[in-house]
Amino acid sequence: MRSAIWVPLFDALAEPAAVVRLAVEAEEAGWDGFFVWDHVNWRAPVRAVADPWIVMAAIVARTERLRVGPMVTPVARRRPAKLARETATLDQLSGGRLTLGVGLGSDRFGREYSALGDETDDRVRAELLDESLEILKAAWTGDPVDHQGKHFTVDGISFEPRPAQRPGVPIWVAGYTGKTRPMRRAAQYDGFFPVNLEHPDQVAEVAATIGSLRAPATTTYDIAVGLPPDADPAPYAEAGATWRLVAFGPNDLTVDEVRAVVRAGPGWDQDDVTE
């Protein structure tokens, strides 16, 4: 199991330079990744919100090994052509260290859809997500993309340069455990990020379900779990999780609070898990 820091870019952590310094320290302390929330607004008491893509670009410019990614970006509120350019450029800049976390997003935490005139219907957002992911996968090939869909059109446009990773940037799909459609969607891509995780048994269920949905020849797949800093990751690794994202809440978070966890290091190694 690999370990990452996962932070909201709110208030004290809306200062890009402070977050970049934390990421540099995380790499020095042996963390494998540094993931960030992707939001344009959040409910009170949060006031300041930073852009994750600008912050991630600054992080990869100052680090050499650390994997980065939005966890997760609500694809329904983004234009797939713009996202294709951003992901390929960031992956090139990082030398192939981007992981793209994707999901439906939600309007309930900051009215990010209703307050900005974006789609609030979950089923329509699911359509937008699926169609956008089709376009992204096609765009990352570098070949001309011809897509005539319900929501988007791409008429013979090539998206170069391609991402550094081949065939493209790994995609982790967020969703609720126990629900069929998110797991079917996740099985088509590179990883699953359960958003309602409460115990390791859910991870085992996810691993079994997604394993049954994927082609037998497919071997590499990630299951990422968000855990509090003091949670023991070993039972989750035994159940099939491949990444632990140490999670921090959105309210009253300080740089020093994150730094203390960063400097302590991952503190756990997969060799500690007995088979």
Results as ranks from 00 to 15, higher is better:
3 S>E: 14
3 S>K: 13
3 S>C: 12
4 A>L: 06
5 I>E: 02
6 W>L: 07
6 W>K: 08
7 V>I: 04
7 V>P: 01
8 P>H: 04
8 P>N: 05
9 L>A: 09
10 F>D: 01
11 D>N: 15
14 A>M: 03
14 A>C: 01
14 A>H: 01
15 E>K: 08
15 E>M: 08
15 E>C: 08
15 E>A: 14
16 P>T: 04
17 A>W: 10
18 A>H: 10
18 A>Y: 05
21 R>Y: 06
22 L>A: 02
22 L>F: 06
23 A>K: 12
23 A>T: 02
24 V>T: 12
24 V>S: 11
24 V>C: 13
25 E>A: 15
27 E>F: 04
27 E>C: 04
27 E>T: 03
30 G>C: 08
30 G>F: 01
30 G>E: 07
31 W>F: 02
31 W>L: 01
31 W>A: 03
32 D>W: 05
33 G>N: 14
34 F>L: 01
34 F>T: 04
35 F>V: 10
36 V>K: 04
40 V>I: 15
40 V>K: 05
40 V>G: 10
40 V>T: 06
41 N>R: 13
41 N>F: 13
41 N>H: 11
42 W>A: 08
43 R>T: 13
44 A>N: 13
45 P>F: 09
46 V>P: 11
47 R>Y: 10
48 A>D: 15
49 V>M: 09
50 A>T: 06
50 A>L: 03
51 D>G: 08
54 I>Q: 10
54 I>T: 15
55 V>A: 00
55 V>D: 00
56 M>F: 01
57 A>F: 09
58 A>T: 07
58 A>Q: 14
60 V>A: 03
60 V>F: 04
60 V>L: 02
60 V>H: 01
62 R>Q: 02
62 R>H: 00
63 T>P: 04
64 E>W: 06
64 E>I: 08
66 L>F: 00
67 R>S: 05
67 R>C: 09
67 R>L: 12
68 V>G: 02
69 G>V: 05
70 P>F: 00
70 P>N: 00
71 M>T: 10
74 P>D: 02
76 A>F: 08
76 A>R: 00
77 R>H: 07
77 R>E: 05
77 R>M: 11
78 R>H: 13
78 R>T: 08
78 R>K: 15
79 R>M: 12
79 R>L: 14
82 K>Y: 09
82 K>I: 14
83 L>I: 04
84 A>S: 03
84 A>V: 07
85 R>Y: 06
85 R>Q: 15
85 R>S: 11
85 R>K: 15
86 E>I: 15
86 E>R: 07
86 E>Y: 10
87 T>M: 09
87 T>Q: 08
87 T>L: 11
87 T>A: 14
88 A>Q: 11
89 T>V: 14
90 L>S: 07
90 L>H: 00
90 L>E: 10
90 L>G: 07
91 D>G: 01
94 S>M: 01
95 G>F: 09
96 G>V: 03
96 G>Q: 02
101 G>Y: 03
102 V>D: 11
103 G>H: 03
103 G>R: 01
103 G>F: 03
103 G>W: 03
104 L>S: 05
104 L>V: 06
104 L>H: 02
104 L>D: 04
105 G>Q: 11
105 G>Y: 09
106 S>I: 12
106 S>P: 07
106 S>Q: 12
107 D>L: 04
108 R>K: 11
109 F>L: 13
109 F>M: 10
109 F>Q: 12
111 R>E: 14
